[in-house]
Amino acid sequence: MKKFDFKKILKHTEFYVFVIIIALSLIIQARSGLFFANNNIVDLLRSLIVPSIYALCALLAFVSTGPDVSFPLIAALSAYLAIIVTKAIGYTGSAFLVFIFAIIFGMVMGALNGWIIVKYKFPSLIVTLGTSSIFNGILLGAFEAGRMDLPQPLERLGETSLLTVKNARTGLGSSLPMTFLIMIGLYIITYLVLNYTMVGRGVYALGGDEISAERAGFNVKAIRFGIFVANGAIAAIAGVCYSVMSMRYLPTEYEGGEMIVIAAVILGGTRMAGGVGTLKGCILGTLLLTMVSNSLILVGIPVSWQRVFIGVIIIIGTAISALQSYTAGRIKSKVKKEAA
């Protein structure tokens, strides 16, 4: 049995993010009285969906290899292709098949990333910057993608909602889309794979120390390739979810989402050097940044200040996590020196 150890909790970055979230929500509540209103909570959950699915991509990439910045474009291109294919074959059945189409396209794009990174050992940031530029060129140049309506299966999915609330006081309503369940499902699957399978442990082993992982018998190349393929699939799901939630396909709205998501994942305690990162931290970090961008306006801070806040939060968050890993490294080497 795991014992509840308060001291240990204090050492986790996740705990501090959690405290900041509570503090921020209380401040917003005190200033505006609107934070804990049912519609605001539902709105928050709603805007959490796509970034938190992206966050899975960022987490997997960081833990195993390094930054991946191509997921928004993979999302955009695979959602586009899936919608086009669905329309072309005139399919009107369940939305499930549309997701499968998107996942297949996403996996192909992820495989391209994975192949280049595994074969040539280039920094993942540079490779994914390059491939996302290629995907962007294919989407907007070769296909000349424009705004378009969704095919029937996705339209139906977008119209059904999980939960609809209406704020009695302000009269504002909001609804939680079905895509929320997809996000929950993805988190559960990722949690199970990362924690209860050999491959999942391999992901962490590989990020911690590649050579040791190889000696321990993990197939490093296959795992790394697999992660990028999986990232492609997850990004594709996020892409379809995004179009379902906005009820239209908007090709240019995807780009640029990666930076905030990466920041969120790092804030949640994921180590940039690899090997460390939890889903808990992932979702908490995303929640914090979503709250900042969604709720600052409730406190009366003008929208123009939003970026300044996000920048400051990223810098402070990464500085804390960088200093933490630095001091941890120093203590370790000190202990080693004393032992020797």
Binding site: I315, A319, Y326
Partner: peptide, 29 residues
Amino acid sequence: LVSYLRIPAMLATLGSYQLFMGIAIVISH
């Protein structure tokens, strides 16, 4: 940020670019 605080350069400049852009937005409305 990169030297004293030991933030990896990519993330440090990622954060600072949000900050600089934010300041630019605030100044120019």
